[in-house]
Design a protein around this nucleic acid. Structure first.
Lengths: 172, 172
DNA sequence: GAGCAATAATTGGTGACGTCAATAGTTGTT
DNA sequence: AACAACTATTGACGTCACCAATTATTGCTC
């Protein structure tokens, strides 16, 4: 049950052995696997998203945090306090996920939950001084991650990419 | 006869990539959450990768497959047979994941495992006629997914984005 | 002003996913 | 003949996205 829920484990039955096999393919610019998959921008985004997440997480590994915690911290750094509901919608994480993330950050002393004066259901998450210090200490290393990821691009191309991605992600 | 093997180097054709294709978004967004997170291209990629994967999976939901199965099928469509090891390195999935994916596809009758005549350790995964038919039937719908994702961009901008992402993803 | 729908935070469960460790069978090398 | 490297495979572990249900609180409405 490691992978698929849509099927049980399948044991390959006896297959007819044919001497026919794959035909060697010249590796020109029209590589078939290129046409098949990497021609799709959506799939490219999915793929690079995975790689980006991995890079971030390995970078954060020593600090004991993960990308999602880091996202919360950086959002709070620019917001000076945010409702958990706000974190959920802004960062795109499930409300239940926010609970665990803020729990972790609180345990590490990087954030605090304060009661909202307007609505006693809500809680306001704010950065502590320790949280701010952590962000200052990792700011430069964080940039290095993106720098590494976008190594093949020069400065102008990176700005172009950034602008394009912003347009795509900011769609309401 | 030697199999095509694994291509280790691919050089994307040169494209004129300038920022003229994109209208830079006026950072009028004094929005603090802009400064905090979306200023980071790496995080943008991570986020859009998630959204892209979700879109693909919901699109594939009715067919009983998921994005990873679809990736295998599309790769096979352009390769005319591939070793599982090849699928693993090309698609970036763990070899153990490939096993489950091919199991599922085989159970659905979309692929077959054939013994490699060159190496009895390897197995060659090939598309069946059913698999090909599935790809033909979903080809247009698949394009609609990427179309939807990139809705805010015009044609020129999409080509620019595609070229930039290709450069980033093809790094060894 | 008393019910009632909506909301914020929370808990729990489920399936999908990435990663690593280990194994059996096979190949190439020495 | 022995040994290292490789292929497919199984298994386990932790993370993550998604959904349902609960509790406390708010706003609406009749």
């Amino acid at each position: 049950m490691s992978h698929a829920g849509i099927c049980t484990s399948y044991r390959p039955r006896e297959l007819a052995i044919t001497s026919q096999h794959v035909t060697p393919k010249p590796m020109d610019a029209e590589e078939p696997w290129m046409r098949g998959l990497h021609a799709d921008t959506g799939y490219l985004l999915y793929r690079l998203g995975l790689r980006s997440g991995q890079l971030f997480n390995t970078f954060l590994q020593e600090s004991g945090l993960r990308l999602r915690h880091y996202a919360v911290l950086r959002y709070l750094a620019g917001a000076e306090g945010a409702l958990q509901r706000e974190l959920s919608t802004r960062l795109g994480y499930d409300p239940s996920a926010i609970v665990g993330l803020v729990d972790d950050l609180e345990r590490l002393g990087m954030t605090e939950r304060r009661p909202s004066p307007d609505d006693r259901r809500s809680k306001i998450v704010v950065l502590t001084e320790d949280g701010r210090a952590f962000l200052r200490g990792t700011d430069e290393a964080g940039r290095r991650v993106t720098n590494d990821l976008l190594a093949p691009l020069d400065t102008a191309e990176r700005e172009t990419l950034q602008a394009l991605l912003l347009r795509v992600v900011d769609r309401p």
